[in-house]
């Protein structure tokens, strides 16, 4: 199949399953991600499960160019770890 010219596939939406310590809380962590990632425009975070020392969260990330590796790096910096990518939406920009 012929590939489209000058088109770049970009991540527009992604759902992440993340394990994190109780601190920083989801407000601070989500704010940090939105502020530090230029390609991200909106994040909805919800808590899925709370354990004694940790909590599992679901992050729905919206943007025009989401870099999952950058998100992983920031999560790591905050002591959180990416368990799985549960959903993704990729769109082509500049398709001819």
């Amino acid at each position: 199949m012929a590939q489209r010219q000058n088109s770049i596939a970009k991540v527009k939406y992604v759902v992440l399953d993340v394990l994190k310590p109780h601190r920083p809380n989801i407000v601070d962590l989500t704010r940090e991600l939105v502020v530090k990632l230029p390609g991200v425009t909106k994040i909805s975070t919800s808590i899925v499960e709370i354990d004694q020392d940790t909590e599992s969260i679901k992050m729905e990330i919206y943007g025009h160019d989401i870099k999952v590796d950058e998100i992983k790096k920031i999560l790591r910096e905050y002591g959180a770890s990416l368990h799985s990518i549960d959903a993704v939406t990729i769109e082509e920009d500049g398709a001819e």
């Binding site: 394990l19 310590p21 920083p24 004694q52 020392d53 940790t54 905050y78 002591g79």
Partner: peptide, 17 residues
């Protein structure tokens, strides 16, 4: 140390530490 055991990861060089 307790948190590292729960998270199953090294927390060195994180904001937490």
């Amino acid at each position: 140390k307790e948190l590292e055991e729960s998270m199953l990861m090294d927390l060195k060089d994180t904001v937490y530490t």
